Simulated scan of single mutants.
Amino acid sequence: MNISKRASNIKVSPVRKLIPYQEEAIKRGKKVYHLNIGQPDLPTPPEFTEFIVNSGEKTLSYAHSKGNLGLRLAMSKFYKENFDLDFNEEEILITAGGSEALLFVLTTIFDVDDEILLSEPYYANYNSFFEMLQIKVNAFSAKSEDGFHLPPKEEIIAKITPKTKAILLTHPGNPTGTVYTEEELKIIGDIAKEYNLYVISDEVYRLLSYDNKIATSMGSFPEYRENTIIIESISKTYSACGARIGAIVSKNKEFISQVYKLCQARLSVSTLDMIGAEGLYNTLKKDYFDGNRAIYEKRRDVIYEGLLKIDGVKVTKPEGAFYVMVTLPVDDSEKFAIWMLEYFDYEGETVMLTPAQGFYKTPDAGKQQVRISYCIEEEKIRKSLKILEEGLKKYNSK
């Protein structure tokens, strides 16, 4: 029996590609430190479960396809209190995580062979949606020596064609940890207005920015309100990846009315998860976010300073999220990452990395780079750095 080309053309996620090697390493008795995945290790706030338990739901019926009204009102209030953003409940659609939000946004905007513009390196799992929907990618390059900030405006415009429909930003960046300035966001907004493009702003890490930097939302600029679509999620904000609650947020009424059809087609999001998410949005305030940010910022400092001490390693200090792009003194980062799992251990322990080639559209770009996530405790970070240092020494002495 045949499998569709649509499914066959989707590549394995580079974030999860090495899982079979990791599983074999564990079977052989190695302890593996996971530097490969952005899974927050901080506890999910108990308010999530408490709201579900106290909800009094006797029958788990279908929820509204837009999402529970209480959750959408809570999000509207959250935006106003934390970011001074004015989005009402009719401008918010609840989705099964940020991934479904992006899938619905792309499906609504793009036809087959239309083009999307974005900065590389970019979140590799986007490619699955692009391939599924047969969207072509045009990427402009951001350089590590510039902190992966945007290139000059003319370099971005040079990538626009008559088939370009939208610019996709991840802000703060995954995999780079870059926090764009207001001036950079205005450049993107101006380009979008001039060329009649959407700006899809993936802002799931918005509350994780460091060194007193502020990750300004693309929704902060009234002049771009018709162009702007925001992707939201509770996964990183509240350490609730498994809850699968995201959102599409936009003041473009025509866009919202069209994407709502997709929400109706899949009926509704999990009622229980929406109740729990409403509890999070309604009860957790600035102190909670400040506390989480301080923990991740300290971890950022530990991993950045530790990487600087390893011979041959090049790294740019990330400004947000919980990732860092690292250039290693190796011939091929994927080969090295597999070797670390298959053949190397330091005192019975090894690390799992994410090779960076999958984060680039340009062939062979990122071949010596890895993305490292610092979603683990400081002591585990220090151990991981030692393992990485010893692994590099042995790999390069083969």
Rank of each mutant, 00 (worst) to 15 (best):
A215Q: 13
T181K: 06
H34C: 05
N127S: 13
A101C: 06
I275A: 00
K393P: 11
I160Y: 09
A192D: 05
M132S: 14
M325S: 14
N82S: 13
E223M: 06
N82Y: 10
S65K: 00
P172S: 08
S55R: 05
V15C: 02
G189A: 10
G189Y: 03
T237F: 00
E254L: 03
D86C: 08
K11A: 08
S397K: 15
G147M: 07
Q368E: 13
Y281W: 03
I116G: 12
K261H: 09
D114Q: 14
L106A: 15
T316F: 10
Q368K: 15
V112D: 00
K17H: 04
I157P: 04
I37H: 15
I229W: 04
M218N: 14
G306K: 12
K335P: 03
K398P: 06
R244Y: 13
Y33S: 10
L267C: 04
S128A: 11
K236M: 03
M75R: 09
F140T: 03
F221D: 01
E377Y: 02
I191L: 03
S144L: 11
Y198H: 03
V12W: 14
P121G: 00
N68Y: 08
G98K: 13
I230V: 13
Y122W: 09
K251R: 13
E57N: 06
R293H: 04
K193S: 13
